[in-house]
Write a protein that binds this DNA or RNA. Sequence first.
RNA 1: GGAGAGGUGGCCGAGCGGUUGAAGGCGCACGCUUGGAAAGCGUGUGUAGGUUUACCCCUACCGAGGGUUCGAAUCCCUCCCUCUCCGCCA
Length: 425
Amino acid sequence: MLDLKTIRDNPEAVKSRLKRRGGDFKELDELLKPEEDRRLGLQESESLKNKKKKLSAEVGQLKQKGQDASELMEEVRTINISIKELDEKTQAWEQQVQEKLLGIPNIPDDSIPDGADESANRVVRNWGTKPQFAFKPKNHVEIGEQLDLLDFKRAAKISGARFVVYKGLGAGLLRALINFMIDVQTRENGYQELYPPFLVNKESMQGTGQLPKFEEELFATRNDPLYLIPTAEVPVTNFHRDEILEEESLPICYAAYTPCFRREAGSYGKDTQGLIRQHQFDKVELVKFSRPEESSAELDKLVENAESILKKLNLHYRVMELCAGDLGFSATKTYDLEVWLPSQDTYREISSCSNFADYQARRARIRCKKRTGGKPQFVHTLNGSGLAAGRLFVALLENYQQEDGTVIVPEALRSYMHGQEILKL
RNA sequence: GGAGAGGUGGCCGAGCGGUUGAAGGCGCACGCUUGGAAAGCGUGUGUAGGUUUACCCCUACCGAGGGUUCGAAUCCCUCCCUCUCCGCCA
């Protein structure tokens, strides 16, 4: 969330910077009045509490001397009634303010382009070249089913639409991809591996911004107040929730493999075929906690770390810088990696790397203590996919397919597949 | 799931219901001391909110939330977490 003081001091300035996202941000105006009430109520309540404290101390002294204190006791009782009333009101105001505050997205970074939607996103760079085929390339569903790597029908039977069973070499390839990515990120790119829970509580979902605004996107459990994670970002960022980190320990870099669970509400009809948009998919996520002044540079590194996987697999891709209107709710700046998919003759997102600045850190209360002293300040959090395994699987099948229907295993992966060089029936 | 024990500041560890934000110790920072270091001595050392140019001051926080009381870290209730034993289980 944004800093309440900043909003209070200059709501119009905040609003005009938010406007680049599009939308009206009425929450911002709506919280000003209850915030004002809250502060006045708080001041009054605190001065009453001060009075109460002093009187109570006097009661103690009188009683020790064996004197009568019933008059003072009665006075405190009266004060207590006022305090209770005031506190109830103040709490209600505070809750209103919090609700509004949680509904306001992060401010777009000044450096990112204007624009209303993805058409205004900027291509930062390209890597590699499109593979040339002497035949009409098939899509991953055809390839996967013909080679008996994927089974969508039976997955629908046991779970429903938007699920898949990876089978045989397909399951092996998926595992290989996950291990390969974890190894690259931990051994070459300096991340520490974390293997977190896949079910988390409400506080965690609120810490990273999934709740309260995006509840309909989450799977929840019926008998316990737990949610299935939509990304490892949630457990890993919340790993340091309510903590004050040592400045020298920053940046802290974690890589975590988890499955991700998303309801995909509101995406009916979109990408209904294949692995592109599933309710459950696998991902290696990169998460960083950085000093505020270094987060911009750390984002650049994060993007490169994600890219390194695609380079090693020799997959053609491009890096996009998202415009203000296409930015996610909590992000201040985002780069997407888009991999080339020959069957669709287009690029598809395979990684999204964002700087959240202090937005998540404030929600989750993750701070760092300055070596030089002074108040702890909020760290900056960043994360990005490194990469989404399901979509990487798609890219491999499609880009490495051959005319005879088989698929070549990229060299970097072979040691993860017991030397397997080719996927065939 | 059942029985028991416990959750206090960066860490350890005290804390008859009354001025305790919290003794003491460790750690850390600064200063003195020293040729230098150690030891020693001295001072300081939580977070959030309100107010303030700043200092100060005020309020809250001793797992969380309620309650009793003029007054709660200390009493009561609920919940969470940790540990030990039993049961169950991959």
